[in-house]
Design a protein around this nucleic acid. Structure first.
Length: 195
DNA sequence: CTCGCGATATTCT
DNA sequence: GAATATCGCGAGA
């Protein structure tokens, strides 16, 4: 069943860990793509230098992070790739969880078609934030989408309780003391984790 | 396998 | 004008 508003209303670090092993559903018309979340990162607005909403910086782009939990935050990075985030916590608190990697469960053929890669390796399909967005057809049309009530993009509960590893986040060298925070979480020994 | 680099658009200075 | 929560390619080991 779909994750509830209460699930998303907690702080980003807790939600980031709890999201591991959950099922991300992307429905395009009648076509359904199901994938398992295997890697996440937490971003805490007010104090985290790596966060777009650092010091509660509220701009057109970061606006969605100030909403209540359960919305999607999709933004463009390096001019060409989208990244999918899940907004957490209560209204007015800019926190979000970046989905860094997923494992395809259903609809692998659709993902392959969207990605058009030469590599035959399954893990190259979705082992990175830009890759999984391309594979699942996630772009900024889905920015601010409500995962609690929507059915084109949502997250389903699972009974899995994977082994979780906490690690440093990736590619945020500019964040100084915050770059060493262990706010990246992934499932131990999973093939689809980036790096 | 590990580097190094260019592509590219939106945001903020 | 500069920076960026990335990726894929090609060269070399």
């Amino acid at each position: 069943m779909k994750l509830s508003l209460e699930f998303y209303s907690r702080d980003a670090i807790t939600v980031a860990q709890d999201l591991l092993g959950k099922l991300l559903i992307r429905r395009i018309d009648d076509n359904k793509i199901v994938s398992k979340i295997v890697e996440t990162e937490a971003y805490i607005g007010p104090e985290d230098k790596a966060c777009h909403a650092y010091q509660n910086k509220r701009t057109k782009r970061t606006e969605v992070m100030f909403w209540r939990g359960g919305y999607s935050y999709v933004y463009l990075i390096y001019g060409m790739y989208n990244c999918l985030n899940i907004v957490t916590a209560k209204e007015g608190k800019p926190e979000a969880v970046l989905i860094r990697a997923v494992e395809p469960v259903l609809g692998v053929e659709s993902i392959k078609k969207n990605r058009q890669i030469k590599s035959n390796k399954m893990e190259d399909l979705t082992n990175g934030p830009g890759k999984l967005c391309q594979g699942l057809e996630v772009d900024r049309e889905l920015n601010g989408y409500d995962l609690v009530t929507g059915d084109r993009l949502y997250i389903k509960d699972s009974k899995l309780s994977p082994k979780i590893i906490a690690d440093k986040r990736i590619n945020i060298d500019y964040a100084e003391e915050y770059k060493d925070k262990l706010w990246r979480f992934y499932i131990k020994d999973n093939l689809y984790v980036s790096k």
